[in-house]
Amino acid sequence: MGKKILDKPFVKVEPELCKGCGLCIDACPTEVLKFHTKFNSKGYHYAFYLGDNCTGCGVCFYACPEPEAIVVYKKGYEYTGEEVA
């Protein structure tokens, strides 16, 4: 099971841990985050990654008040497959 190296940055929002405050969306310089039209089980419109153009700058991670709603994978990140799925 070989490790793979991420060749482009990636942001992952955990829908169930997002409170829909929108701070990440407001913070993102490349505007790649958006409210989902769906609600999570808590009743929040959660944020999600549009799927392209994340620069891995990490400002959304620090704008987000939640400990694990957002994970930012930067270019060069070594992964086995699962977490970036």
Partner: peptide
């Protein structure tokens, strides 16, 4: 610098 920004272990 870490290549991933995620939940801290101190949580």
């Amino acid at each position: 610098a870490s290549k991933v920004l995620q939940k801290a272990n101190s949580f």
